[in-house]
Computed example of a mutant assay.
Amino acid sequence: MNNLGNFLTLSTFGESHGIAYGGIITNFPAGIEINFEEIQHQLDRRKPGQSSIVTQRKESDTVQFLSGTFEGKSTGTPIGFVIYNENQKSKDYEHIAAAYRPSHADFTYDQKFGIRDYRGGGKSSARETINWVAAGALAKHILPSTIEIHAYVSSVGDIFCMKPYQDLDFSKIESNDVRCPDEETAEKMISKIKEIKKEGNTIGGTITCVIKNLPIGIGEPVFLKLQAELAKAMLNINAAKGFEYGSGFCGATMTGKEHNDLFNEDFTTKTNLSGGIQGGISNGMDVYFRVAFKPIATILRPQESVDKDGNLVIVEGKGRHDPCVLPRAVPVVENLAAFVLADLFLMNQIRKI
């Protein structure tokens, strides 16, 4: 399945070392003025080579829109876009043509399809997320301008941003390479990533996302609950290992008296342990969630593994890889969230017709 969304849909194509990535978006409303510069800006936030703590692959990641727009506005027909690959080094992967990298998709792809593109992981490459950022940045145009979506790195390894999101200045997210708005914590995170990189190793962590000013009523009662659609999107991100919203797993340790969000007279709540969602539907409070990411599987150190025939081999990563996925995953989380919200927002409008 290469489709995202229910009413507003994205169908994607492309591989890491193929000619290009791209997608087709259907059911995008007509007559919406498109800010193409902002879409490119979001892609620039995701692209490689931004700093010393991410992969040094050099890609402009320039998006070209092929259909569905005219004179700067959407026409209501399918919107096609393409992003050409420019800086592949396929020779870096020839040594694993017949070997399986530990914790990668090599083995499962081979078993499922009987063939795999070993160059950069093919379709399993995180470069696929470029399509999602482009689509999400476009989908933001559907949402009311009052809605704010802010994602930031909230932990790297055992280094946590201890401040609640209400005490953070989201305007500082882009002020450092790791995209953590708490400057003191950001410095520690960057030092940790650089240390790990020198060892030829990788490290994981978490990204927190906050959605402000979301109208009441977004999300469906049963199988299209807002939290479920967000979780589905986030857990499709490469290296994502967990999702929690509101009180998350901590809520499992509380009693109902402690956990219930009591109402104020204006229908806001005194607390927001529900994470802005009740019964699968937004209640007007901030929606907030956290996504956990594992350490990237490709490490520049020798590891024992097996080849296609079951022979023991030594596999060592080569080439250019992220020591930590988190800084470049921040715009992926934000724009995927935007796509989910736009999809549910349109469904909500249809329901009211």
Rank of each mutant, 00 (worst) to 15 (best):
G280T: 04
K212Y: 02
T146A: 13
I130S: 13
G217E: 09
P181I: 08
S51I: 09
C161Y: 03
G49W: 11
T146M: 03
N201K: 11
H95F: 10
Q42C: 13
D110F: 12
E128D: 13
L43P: 04
D343Q: 13
Y165V: 00
A105W: 02
A240T: 04
E71S: 09
L341E: 06
E187K: 14
Q42S: 15
I79E: 11
N283W: 00
N85D: 05
S305P: 00
I314S: 15
I203K: 02
G80C: 04
E59Q: 08
E184N: 13
N27K: 11
G80L: 04
H95Q: 10
H104E: 07
S274M: 13
P327N: 08
L344N: 02
A239Y: 07
T75K: 03
K294G: 01
T185A: 01
T77V: 05
A342K: 00
P215Q: 13
V330S: 10
N131P: 14
I149P: 07
G5S: 03
L224A: 08
I190E: 00
G120K: 01
T12G: 04
C209I: 11
R46G: 01
G120Q: 01
E86N: 13
T185S: 02
A99N: 15
P302A: 09
V178D: 08
F13P: 07
